[in-house]
């Protein structure tokens, strides 16, 4: 196999790289165009871009929705780029990288959920990548969709449906019985069932939001500090800190290292991990195996 690539291959590569970068660039342009100019630092939720009239209730299209769609598009570009030109004989660097990701998720799902849930690894990888890259959007100055409770709540609701689906595997009677394990604790079991998605959503949302709030407060404090420290200098030097707060350069980056990069990736990992543990824990494996055996025996008898 020759190492030279054809012109069409390189063209598709360039288009895919554009597909990765263009959504992020679009997001930045939209952000710049729609943010109203203010002097003061403000902590606000997601901006509402426009409102779609709906019969029951109007549907606002917010910054978090737009940004999460941009992340989805960008991630699609990443996936297509990594899997472009796969071949069993001549392996490229990006193919090794893609294989590494797939193998790592497969291993994680296998060790945490068991062989029955082998098909879950694409879902887990998708939810992890979406969550991590949504949180990392703060690095380019965009509003992270994960600091909106509605987005994370939607994901947690999805996980809740999965949990309920796997609890229903042995029939509705078994599902209802699982709440009355010790019959006295039935109300507590129902509450803890509802608390699962709520705690997942609040954990992710609270971590990302607290990081951004603390970053904004620190930036405001550093701006005020640079004015008070250097504001009394003579001449133009005294006016400079009001236009360009010098202390705001570099110092917030140290906090950002923890709050944006470490915390965002950690929360993505934890969300995926909890999804795996809850779904695997909801599946009554022994009872399901017993039920399958019973059905098999019945089929044998009728045959």
């Amino acid at each position: 196999m020759s190492k030279r690539r054809s012109a069409s291959f390189i063209l598709v590569d360039v288009l895919l790289i554009l597909m990765i970068l263009l959504p992020l660039f679009c997001g930045m342009v939209i952000k710049i165009l729609t943010t109203p100019p203010t002097d003061e630092i403000s902590i606000a939720g997601a901006q509402i871009y426009f409102i779609v009239p709906m019969p029951l209730q109007d549907m606002p299209i917010t910054e978090s929705q737009v940004n999460s769609w941009l992340v989805i598009l960008s991630l699609l570009g990443v996936c297509l780029y990594l899997t472009h030109g796969l071949s069993p004989t001549y392996e490229t660097r990006r193919q090794h990288f893609a294989e590494m990701i797939v193998e790592a998720t497969d291993n994680m799902v296998n060790s945490n959920m068991g062989a029955y849930f082998k098909a879950f690894s694409p879902f887990i990888c998708a939810i992890m990548a979406l969550s991590a890259f949504s949180s990392l959007l703060t690095l380019i100055g965009l509003y992270p969709p994960t600091s909106d409770l509605n987005v994370v709540g939607g994901w947690a609701l999805l996980v809740f449906f999965l949990i309920t689906y796997y609890k229903f595997k042995c029939g509705p009677i078994h599902y209802l019985k699982s709440f009355a394990e010790p019959p006295a604790l039935t109300p507590l079991n129902v509450i803890s069932e509802i608390a699962t998605p709520i705690s997942m959503a609040f954990r992710h949302y609270g971590n990302v939001l607290s990081g951004s709030v603390i970053s904004v407060l620190l930036a405001a404090a550093l701006g005020g500090l640079s004015v008070t420290l250097f504001g009394n200098l003579p001449g133009i030097l005294g006016k400079l800190p009001q236009v360009f707060p010098i202390l705001r350069v570099g110092i917030p980056a140290i906090l950002s290292l923890y709050f944006d990069i470490f915390s965002g990736c950690l929360q993505a990992f934890i969300f995926a991990m909890l999804t795996m543990l809850y779904v695997a824990g909801a599946f009554p494996a022994e009872d399901y195996a017993r039920k399958m055996e019973k059905i098999k025996n019945k089929n044998k008898k009728t045959n």
Partner: peptide, 14 residues
Amino acid sequence: MLMGCAVAETTGLY
């Protein structure tokens, strides 16, 4: 440990 820390953090985040 990271998993446990994240779960223990929940009450604080509430």
